Simulated scan of single mutants.
Amino acid sequence: MQIRPRTDDDAPALIAILTQVHERDGYPARPLNVRREWLWQDAFVGAWVAVDDGVVVGHVALADGFAGPGVPEGALGISRLFVAPRATGRGAGAALLDAARVGAGDRPLGLEVADWSAAARALYERLGWRQVGEGVAEWAGPDGRHPTLTYFVAP
Rank of each mutant, 00 (worst) to 15 (best):
G65N: 10
D10W: 02
D25E: 13
P12T: 07
P108W: 08
L109R: 02
A75I: 09
V55W: 03
A100Y: 00
L123N: 00
G54T: 08
V83R: 00
F82A: 08
R86E: 13
Q41L: 11
A50S: 15
A67K: 05
E23S: 13
T88H: 13
V21W: 00
E23V: 14
D8Y: 03
G74I: 13
G89P: 05
W116G: 03
G26W: 00
A43P: 10
D64P: 12
D9Q: 14
V51Y: 07
A95V: 05
F66Q: 02
T88V: 15
P108D: 09
R30G: 12
D10L: 11
R35C: 14
G68C: 06
G77F: 02
D10P: 09
T88F: 05
A16I: 04
V55H: 09
A50R: 06
L111F: 04
E23M: 12
I15D: 08
Q20R: 09
W38K: 05
V57H: 03
A104V: 05
R80E: 15
A92S: 10
V60Y: 06
P108Y: 14
A47V: 08
L96I: 13
E112V: 10
A94G: 13
A13C: 12
G70T: 05
A63I: 12
V102M: 02
W40M: 08
R90T: 14
W48T: 05
G89A: 14
G68V: 00
H22Q: 15
R36V: 06
